[in-house]
Design a protein around this nucleic acid. Sequence first.
DNA 1: TTAGATGCAAAGCTTTTGCAGGATA
DNA 2: TATCCTGCAAAAGCTTTGCATCTAA
Lengths: 158, 158
Amino acid sequence: MDAQLRDRWLATAHERLAAAGLRTGAARERVMECLARDAQCLVSVQELMDRLRRDGGGGSQASLYRILDELHGLGLLHRHVLPDGTSRYELALPGTRHHHFVDEASGRVEPFTDPDLERAIATAARRLGLRMTGHEVVITGRRAVTDGRDQGSSADAP
Amino acid sequence: MDAQLRDRWLATAHERLAAAGLRTGAARERVMECLARDAQCLVSVQELMDRLRRDGGGGSQASLYRILDELHGLGLLHRHVLPDGTSRYELALPGTRHHHFVDEASGRVEPFTDPDLERAIATAARRLGLRMTGHEVVITGRRAVTDGRDQGSSADAP
DNA sequence: TTAGATGCAAAGCTTTTGCAGGATA
DNA sequence: TATCCTGCAAAAGCTTTGCATCTAA
């Protein structure tokens, strides 16, 4: 968990909510703190619900969905839909964009970044004559059996 | 609609179904013909249902879902989930893979291909040490106002 | 004759909505 | 005090399942 990212997101979020003329509510504050901490990479609504309950705060499902939709509308969250049809959210902040890999073996979603891929997407959009507002890359697969072999330099930015 | 693609897919599908020891059923035949014709780029289950009804054949919703799942399991269909949570299918055949662009203005989904992008994805997967079984790229945006200007060479393979 | 294939209806899941009551600025 | 925020419960969609029936091989 990146504490700096968490704080930066919380600050931005509060700022933007205030600018939108919205008030401070207990439920939303709890959700936002949970997101800032646990949604640095895609989390499902169910996972969020569980963590909120575990954190003691409680909160209703309806509020959670409403709040997520609201934050997404303000551009504070990215929203993805997995092949199973459930939606997942993660913090949206400039410079933190990443792609996703779904491990078929475990069902886990993991982030990765790749400047070349990013570039290729931008180029493709330009070729198509599009003003791109967003993009999503999901690679599905399994970890190659590494048996200790070097996997080559990580595509993840350091 | 690409008649050659349609026929090639139907042939492959029949072949693979037979190889899997499955029997011929009226409902599945109708669905397959509809897919071969209308699912060369992502169609929703609802759209398929409508077209099947319009074609007169009828068929139940349960069968449609079952058949789609079955064909997907045999690798004959690609399955995508759009941001609204509904799933869409399209024919899966070697050499016909393409990416998707969602036009925010119209909500339409359109296909495009881009060898460079394809390459970038393969490279990224390799770097990550993954055995890739699938990938999905969705670009969201709007068509730039072209006002007659050349958009550059199309990213679509000729 | 036997294992699939199909349709109908009901159940399951995630997500959304309606409303009344409770906060915030 | 006027909005906005919350929670509860019910509703809405899309998708899956159970079960009895029909059919291809």
